[in-house]
Amino acid sequence: MTHIYNSKTPFERAALDHVSLKISSGSFTSLIGHTGSGKSTLVQHINGLLRPSSGSISVGDFVIEPQKKKQDLKPLRARVGYVFQYPEHQLFEETAIKDVCFGPMNFGVSAAEATKRAEECLTLVGLPSLFWHRSPFDLSGGQMRRVAIAGVLAVHPEVIILDEPTAGLDPHGQKEIMELFHKLNKNSKLTIIMVTHNMGDAALYSDQILVMEAGQLKMSGAPEEIFSREQDLRNMGLDVPETMVFLDKLTDKLGLEKGRPVFTLSETADRVADLLNGGAAHV
């Protein structure tokens, strides 16, 4: 079990204010909230990029505390991968495959093993092998993003942090990237922590959603639980998934009760069919 426990963390300018939470291993957690609500600050504590001013963070048996100043963070970072927003900006090597090897080799993996991992990961992210030995800067934006993601996966982390992994991609690319992480979470039991503005993605893929506002953790729970508190979310200036927006409009128009939130299209269609039939029965 991987537990991440993070308590009492008033960071400078109080970017985070007494946040406590737990994330279980193998889960998919989404963090939602306004720009500047402290989502990115929070996740940067998880792999030690930022230090708490007070409180502590534990990842498995690794503990970060503000008192322990000189601490080797490498073992932690090998376990917790981090895909930054626009990760293609971190590419620097001559070839895509070399860039993917950079991470594993920093953590002491041999060159041969790193290359093997790189090939596996590039296949996994769906980059055709004819691009492997090209300069990453000759690839398209979407392909560069895949290389960068492979570079984080090749370290073989147990936990991976995603900071808006689909930002700036076209809808098709967005869907492919999300499907990839969904698969990694389900099949390889990779723990995923995702910062996102996309409520649809948060609702569809997460086991748990955390809602941040002004450095505080305001809500946490399963997607259904979070999105049934629609009014609270709206008060924070946050949206609900499109499917719910549509059903709200429909139930309003038909003068029927809102049901529990649904997120997939086919569930939504089922609900609409029910509403029509159920509604008809009353007439």
């Binding site: 991968g81 950079f102 920093n106 370290v155």
Partner: peptide, 16 residues
């Protein structure tokens, strides 16, 4: 800002 971000991104990949 960009420099800070890249430092962090490479640190997360084990760069020191």
């Amino acid at each position: 800002e960009e420099t800070e971000k890249i430092i962090k991104a490479q640190a997360a990949r084990g760069s020191d």
